[in-house]
Write a protein that binds this DNA or RNA. Structure first.
Lengths: 341, 341
DNA sequence: CTGAAAGCGCTTACAG
DNA sequence: CTGAAAGCGCTTACAG
């Protein structure tokens, strides 16, 4: 079944069939009806490849997740993916999800480029990118419409780059203020991946917040991490082997890191929050089920992706010159992992 | 950049460029090299719509999830989706995920049909379908290649229908035998959705297993449910308001239902497993984090989807007349929600 | 208001 | 081994 057949059966030309399908104004109701009847009767749906080839949009966006390891086991990542699928669906768009294990692998990068250049998608969203990701720069300079989470809008603003971030500064301020309010002055931090924007941003926020509260930052309590559970475990594991003084509270770069940290503390016979207060970042789906339930800085990932997807699709449908930037606030969620000292 | 440009730059015809791209045997190495150099140099990727229109595959499969409610919050469903995305990716295929809230809504069904008829996808997988789903039957009779989880292969076997199931019978047998071994004889059950194959299958498996163990089935302890957390909660909530004798153990149609059931028991002041033993089905990602950690019948969803995806893609690439059927075994996972009586 | 025709960018028999 | 040409199924100026 194709448009020629439909045209024949309806007694019109392919042009008219196409006009009906694309809701052109200059088709009289009677003609439209006649054609629609045949279309419905014969279960006709225009071939999407032919439409795209003739200049229509693919109505598909790409979702690129940069994440090492086996992603399908990470609950939060999975939620992000499904979130975007549902958001796009509200606009009649489909999502092509691509998981990037290693953003430095040539073949992988070539695959990503292929998806854009093949015109499989009308635009793409990148999650988990480093501060500077060559592939993203290349795509943007090629004119593709790209949404990026956790990167800065560069000096020379580009209309086809949509940037989305959380206000990590404010988040850290809330975390430190909360701990200070509970009487903590010895506060440590486990950093995230310093190659990603939110790594240094959170750390700088931490430093600023400490200063604001008049607290001293002990460099021995600034531990390296990578946003993963394992890095939180390892940070605390090695820290506890040192002999120096210990902080009474630790802020983790995110909740996964906090989970790992708590696991290491437990193994070492330390209880949270009795022996150490821990505060996370993100409000991971597991944080309220965790023991102890994790106090954290909530971040609205779904809300961010909803806005990002919506802006991306709007840009695809109506390319405009305005530069889009999304910043979302975070909020403290008090649960059970911090205590008053 | 298109194949004509590449042809011109390489000093050959478009035919030859196409032959190089599609790895035809009859291209001399020197010609191939010459063309490849230009292709790489100019970042050329053939337009996928043109390729599909000319008869190649879209290298995309559809994933249709029939699930009411807001899916992005269900951890297990999310894992299934990402699982398929990763499996397909191993074959160079992309996944178009579509979430079906209501399989009886005409517009929704039309959307599903559209995806197939538009030729966006080469085949599709359905998860969460009822025993008989008209849309699936229609697609299969139209000749589309379809994989279905939790449905039967009909009498007249169809080569383009791939069916995947768990051995629910054996699962139920293991659950009942385990409880019987702990001394339970008063065993109740919360059923799943009886409109889906695994609903009645699990219940029948339960009945058979009870008989095998010489145990009597008390119909008052056969509670209705729907595979969702809420239904487990409600089943127990209303059951506890009745005055009759209570079972000492309950088998839930799946882990979500078990979570709901335990929540209702707790609210009623009953402890698991002290006052009631509970056993689930699936081994949900949260089951080992649950309090008490849930004893359950493990089911390998990822393994099933991996096989289903692989067979689906094989069928797409090489349509054969053989009928494919997948059945996976389940296994008991003992944790903390059952006790000896 | 509507049809004939060009064009989108490929692939693949066909002929040599 | 390779090129010219038909064909895939649409959309959209263009002309009337």
């Amino acid at each position: 079944m194709n448009s020629i057949e439909i045209a024949r059966l309806a007694g019109v030309s392919r042009s008219t069939v196409s006009r009906v399908i694309n809701n052109y104004a200059n088709v009289p109701p009677k003609t439209r009806e006649k054609v629609m009847k045949v279309i419905q009767q014969y279960n006709y749906f225009p071939n999407v490849s032919a439409q795209v080839l003739a200049g229509k949009r693919a109505r598909t966006i790409g979702l690129f997740l940069i994440a090492p390891g086996h992603v399908s086991s990470d609950i939060l990542t999975n939620m992000l993916i499904v979130s975007v699928i549902e958001d796009a669906s509200a606009y009649g768009y489909y999502v092509l999800t691509h998981i990037i294990r290693d953003a430095n692998d040539t073949e992988t990068i070539n695959n990503v480029k292929e998806i854009f250049f093949q015109r499989r998608i009308d635009g793409g969203i990148f999650i988990g990118a480093a501060k500077h990701e060559p592939i993203i720069e290349e795509l943007i300079s090629e004119g593709f419409i790209v949404g990026v989470v956790d990167q800065e809008q560069p000096e020379i603003q580009q209309f086809n780059r949509i940037v989305a971030n959380f206000n990590n500064d404010s988040g850290m301020k809330q975390a430190v203020a909360y701990l200070a309010g509970l009487g903590h002055s010895k506060i440590g931090v486990i950093n995230g991946d310093m190659n990603r924007l939110s790594g240094p941003t959170k750390y700088e926020g931490f430093l600023k917040a400490m200063q604001l509260c008049g607290l001293h930052v002990n460099q021995d309590w600034v531990l390296a991490g990578s946003f993963h559970e394992e890095s939180g475990y390892e940070a605390i594991y090695s820290f506890l082997r040192t002999q120096g003084e210990r902080p009474t509270a630790i802020i983790a770069a995110n909740d996964s890191v906090a989970f790992g940290a708590i696991r290491a503390l437990k193994e070492h016979g330390l209880q949270v929050p009795a022996d150490m207060s821990i505060i996370g970042f993100d409000d991971h789906p597991l944080s309220d089920k965790h023991h102890p339930a994790l106090t954290t800085i909530r971040v609205d990932f779904s809300g961010m992706l909803k806005r990002l997807t919506s802006i991306l699709i709007a840009k695809i449908e109506q390319p405009t010159a305005d530069v889009k930037q999304i910043t979302l606030d975070c909020s403290l969620v008090v649960r059970e992992s911090c205590r008053r000292v």
